[in-house]
Amino acid sequence: MKMHLNRHWPLLTTAGVLVALYVAASIAYTGFSSWFQFAQLFADNATLGLAAIGMTFVILSGGIDLSVGAVIALASMGLAVLVSHMGLPVWIAIPLVLVIGTGFGAFMGAIIQMFKLPPFLVTLAGMFLARGTALLLTETKRIEMSDSAGIRALSSVLVVDFNIAAMVFLVAVLVAWAALKYTRFGRTVFAIGSDESAARLMGLPIASTRVGIYAISGVCAAAGGIVHVIGTQAGDASVAFLLELDAIAAVVIGGTVLAGGRGSILGTLLGVLILGIITTIPNYQGNLNSWWIKIVIGLLLLVFVVLQRVSQRWSGARG
């Protein structure tokens, strides 16, 4: 049992931080611990959460994806254009946007894989391209969509206080968890991040997996953009600016190692909720300003990165 505690302690630390934060906030602020607020936590952070799920796959494989914020914006604007300007029904427009997101990610993955280029630069190009396209789609940069019946209908769905964004997020968590745990693709993601050359020697399909990983990041970001549109009833080309940073932070705080190979979707969920609570606290505490959020997130990052470092040294000494 001790062994297993050792193995899971990064995740347990994250869980501990989350519980402590939640309990502290619940004691300090009336209404924080209500069921409605709990559901709201998921709803408010659905876009970030979806992006972080995709980012988890990417980081587990040892890569990075700087384009997710821009892809969210592109999806948001794309959906608005398809529905409001071109008059497509929502049930066609949404799958179309998801396909575009998937294709965008897969394209970046293919370039990274084929030409052996650093993911940092390729996804940086992807970020410029997606953000630029989003901004160029219309001159207004923002399209109000409250007149779209489809979007209105979707935004009014509520199941035990969980809106559509929160539900999509939770379903995505489940699907991603299952994919990482129960599919060969998922295990190959870990294998690539842990030791790519060994994975190749073991005959695992590196190329298709890498393309798949960035495709997943693309589709998750696109879904993030879609739920954002549903939540705000507007498409916006400047939304999710630098959101990739928060997504990376959530993944790292969730115990996933930036070098790849180690981490979990559950951790990412916890990381997203930690960021979510930290961002909510200033709403309750008038004298606490929003910039403290960034400083606290930076500190949390520092703590978790150092913890990972220590645990690596420790396990390295045994190996």
């Binding site: 299952a178 745990k181 129960y182 294998a191 842990s194 030791d195 060994a198 073991m202 190979g261 190996g319």
Partner: peptide
């Protein structure tokens, strides 16, 4: 230099690529 995957379990390292799978291709742990 052992060419296995350090972050996966011992069991997986033995069976990686040949995992027993059930319906929908899910790995039967």
């Amino acid at each position: 230099e052992v060419n296995l995957i350090p972050d996966l379990t011992v069991a997986e390292n033995i069976l990686l690529g040949r995992e027993p799978r059930g319906r929908l291709g899910a790995i039967r742990w």
